[in-house]
Design a binder for these strands. Sequence first.
DNA 1: ACAAATAGATAGACTTGTCTATATATATAA
DNA 2: TTATATATATAGACAAGTCTATCTATTTGT
Lengths: 187, 187
Amino acid sequence: MSDSLVRDKILDTASRLFFEQGYNLTGINQIIEEADIARGSLYNHFGSKSELLLAYLDKAQQERLAETEAYVKTVKDPQKKLLGIFDYRIQRQQQIGYRGCQFIKICAEVSRDDIKVFELVEAHKERLRNFILDLVRQTTHNPVLSDELFADTVFLLLEGSTTSVGFSRNVRGLRQARKIVEGLLVS
Amino acid sequence: MSDSLVRDKILDTASRLFFEQGYNLTGINQIIEEADIARGSLYNHFGSKSELLLAYLDKAQQERLAETEAYVKTVKDPQKKLLGIFDYRIQRQQQIGYRGCQFIKICAEVSRDDIKVFELVEAHKERLRNFILDLVRQTTHNPVLSDELFADTVFLLLEGSTTSVGFSRNVRGLRQARKIVEGLLVS
DNA sequence: ACAAATAGATAGACTTGTCTATATATATAA
DNA sequence: TTATATATATAGACAAGTCTATCTATTTGT
């Protein structure tokens, strides 16, 4: 058997279910059934459901950032790179069925003193903000906003529009956000 | 006896708990205990937990919109009115302990086919967007963005920064968003 | 043989919602 | 004013199911 094919099956299934139907609405029973593994195996690889949650968040976090960077790497112009972030988000939301941001969703589901979850999400968002800031520094944009402030503009528009996908169940907000950034870039 | 002092006690307690610790993490038992009412009374006034949720959302929805409008009404200048929306949000988040948007949180907690919840939230956000659009039409702002697009800018910045409160547990994002709107207004 | 996976029973705490029986307060009728 | 009816509150038992997590005993693969 592979080093841990079972572990991957568990994490993949849990990840899908946590995102698609929510953490609290997903039970251990459903995970082991859909992953087709034994209950004992799950608790052998992950000490508890909340450990599984942290593993999910950390993996998703790395994947989202890597995919964003990969998507953006296909274009040269820094301005187009910035817009590419929105393009990636639009494409992804269409693929996953307009579910919004997976990290925001988890923050809304866990107890306030699940500090590890909040720190993990905060760190991820900070990495994203820095990635945007790096790109912003290579662009010329509307001079009324400093680089820092323009990076926050892009970041907050991205956050707001991705969140809006969650309740509107469409990507209108993301398209508008893209247009706005485009407008602020050319001037 | 008052028209329904009991009903109010139930709804107020449930509202507080749903927001502070989440819908799924709040049980009927905790609600009746903290509201200090009988189990039967709860089910007499609300047919089920999900009916209680809808009542919570609808009341909160009206309150947030009314409070926003009241806050903004204290100033005359349309530009300052727009910024006042952010001031209100900052003040409120500080009061409630940096918990982010109560509507986004609920959307993250319920099943995807709880359509009534999503429609209620969507309608609320649409009202907010229209309120912003009305104000935007009375301002002069950066000409690279149309009124519609500038209204979306304000709306999405507001959404993004309020959401960011939820994981950062501070109002930095809201303050930045306010600065950005201020910058785009004066030019 | 050894490690890891399996099925499945089980514990114990929790969930929502229903039910009964009792108490209390208000409104109506004699 | 007194008696009765109605509505609403109460406490609390209870059903039927969920949840996470632990444990045992067996089978499988290397």
